Structures are given as C-alpha cells and as structure tokens.
Simulated scan of single mutants.
Amino acid sequence: MLSPGEDQNRRLLRARDAMDREFAHALDIPALARIALMSPTHFTRSFRATFGETPHRYLQRRRIERAMALLRSTSVSITDLAAQVGFESLGTFSRTFRAIVGMSPTEFRAGTSPVDVPVCFIKAWTRPSRFG
C-alpha cells in the first residue's frame, strides 16, 4: 500500500509524463489536473512543490529543449519549428526561447555546429536551467 505522499508523487509523475509525451499539443492545467486526479489549484501547488517549477514553466522548458535539438539538427524555418514544438505565435516562441536560453533562436542556430559527440552529452550540456 502506498503512503499518501507516494500516491500523490505517482499522480504528479503521470501528469509530467503526459507533458513530456504531448508537449507539442495544447495542454492546459485542468486537463493535466484530471490526469493527476487533483483539482487544478491543488495540482499546480503540488507540482511546484515537488518539481520546483510551475506546470506551465515546465512545459515551456520542455518545448524549448525540443526546439534547441531541432535547431541543431534541421534547417526547418524558425516559424515552422515554433509550431512543431507547440507554440502558436512566433513572437511568444522567440520571447520564451530568449528568456530560457539567453539568445534568440536565430543566434542559437548560428552558434551551433555539428560535433562528433553523443547526443546525450550535448543535451546535458545545453539543457536550459529551470532557474533561468
């Protein structure tokens, strides 16, 4: 039998996994709270206490991480890339990208070059800080 804390953590992980899988789709707090079997307010409060950031910020960071990978590996236009990772507005994407990464998507793409290093290392080195 799970303790109440363990049960809550599993439900929060289930919602976070859904965000990781469906990051490019429209996700809102009520839908995520239903996955976690919590009220939206309790879900937001518990998510932040457990993971150190709000669900919205976590989802934005996941989308930007995916955008960074695509910027490194494809020549897709930035507008198309923004839509692929779940942003409806290029302006919102660019503003969020700059806030998390510290440079524009165009600057990021220009500053990256293919290197012969395993992808897992590149992802670890370039992962945006959740405190940024």
Rank of each mutant, 00 (worst) to 15 (best):
A18D: 09
L71H: 07
H25I: 07
G102S: 09
A24T: 04
A110N: 04
V85H: 04
L90K: 15
A83F: 01
R57D: 12
R48W: 00
M103T: 14
D20Q: 10
L59M: 00
A67I: 00
Y58N: 04
S104R: 07
R66M: 11
Q84F: 05
R57T: 14
R14K: 15
D17A: 10
P105F: 06
S113C: 02
P105N: 02
T74S: 12
A69P: 01
H56S: 05
R10T: 10
T50P: 06
A15W: 03
R95A: 13
R21Q: 02
T92D: 13
T96H: 12
V85S: 05
F51K: 00
A24N: 04
L37K: 14
Q60R: 14
G86V: 08
R109I: 01
R66V: 03
A49W: 03
R109M: 08
G86P: 06
R21S: 11
R48S: 02
E53S: 13
I29N: 07
A31V: 10
G86D: 00
Q60G: 00
F43S: 07
F97K: 02
V101I: 05
F47T: 10
P105T: 06
S77R: 05
T92E: 12
P30V: 02
T41I: 00
L59I: 13
R34W: 01
R98W: 10
F93P: 14
H42Q: 10
E107Y: 03
R45E: 12
A36M: 07
L37Q: 15
G102R: 12
R14G: 02
S104I: 02
F23V: 06
E22F: 11
P55C: 06
R21L: 00
F87V: 07
G86I: 00
T74M: 08
L90G: 14
F23C: 08
F43I: 03
A26C: 05
D28M: 00
M19W: 01
L81Q: 01
H25T: 05
T50I: 06
A99W: 02
F108G: 11
A49H: 13
S73T: 15
F108N: 07
L59A: 10
I64S: 13
L71A: 01
L32E: 10
E53C: 13
D28P: 07
L12Y: 09
L90E: 15
D20C: 06
L27K: 08
S46W: 00
V101N: 11
H56A: 13
I78L: 10
A26Y: 14
T106G: 15
I29Q: 09
R98G: 02
E53N: 04
G102Q: 05
H42D: 13
S113I: 09
S73E: 13
Y58C: 05
A99P: 03
A49I: 06
R10Q: 13
M103K: 14
Q60I: 09
Y58K: 11
Q60L: 09
T79E: 15
T41W: 07
S77Y: 12
A31S: 12
D80M: 10
L59Y: 01
A26G: 04
D28E: 08
Q8Y: 00
F108V: 10
I100M: 13
